[in-house]
């Protein structure tokens, strides 16, 4: 390797509102960084090739696949995981709706599903069931059959729009 490239990379970012400085292996993806280095085990590594969505986290206001972003690329970013979104009550209505509707079973997909759903909800309006299904079509759930998840997200959208109870 030439000296222009590093196998350990220094990064400085904020995670859940807290500053983090770290030296990360060049090939380490964000989910391993969050889980192994920071102990943030809420988001999960499942397929590690960008298909299942269990690792979905928020980076600079976008929902992204944590397994398809290198930790080295996170320098200067603002990262939110399910832990931070919980602590700040940012998605409390959505979490409550998931519990009330039993929109989760094993819960392994749920943190990623919530981040993906929140991205849709944060755009405002009341998406149709088909739009909710489409938006969540990159987040795999093997337990629920999806309908309860769609119900929960729909109820929150209506609740936030003042059209019903969340």
């Amino acid at each position: 390797m030439t000296e222009m490239f590093r196998d350990k990379v220094d990064v400085s970012l904020t995670v859940n509102g807290e500053p983090v400085e770290a030296r990360v292996p060049a090939g380490q993806h964000m989910i391993d960084f969050l889980r192994l280095e920071l102990g943030l085990t809420g988001a999960h590594a499942s397929c590690e090739h960008g298909v299942c969505g269990a690792c979905t986290i928020r980076v600079d206001d976008d929902a992204v696949r944590g397994c398809l972003m290198l930790a080295a690329q996170a320098d200067g970013t603002e990262v939110w995981t399910i832990e931070g979104l919980t602590d700040t009550n940012a998605i409390r209505d959505l979490q409550e709706a998931f519990v009330v509707r039993n929109a989760l079973q094993c819960g392994f997909c749920t943190p990623g599903m919530l981040v993906a759903a929140e991205e849709l909800l944060s755009k405002g309006g009341t998406p149709s069931r088909a739009e909710i299904r489409e938006h969540l079509s990159g987040n795999y759930c093997r337990c629920t059959g999806y309908e309860a998840i769609i119900d929960a997200v729909e109820s929150v959208a209506q609740g936030r729009a003042g059209k019903g109870k969340a």
């Binding site: 943030l40 085990t41 809420g42 988001a43 995981t81 399910i82 832990e83 919980t86 979490q95 998931f98 519990v99 039993n102 989760l104 094993c106 819960g107 392994f108 749920t110 943190p111 919530l114």
Partner: peptide, 10 residues
């Protein structure tokens, strides 16, 4: 269920 939506599953 509550712990699972909060990412506190183990």
């Amino acid at each position: 269920a509550a712990k699972l939506v909060q990412g506190r599953g183990r």
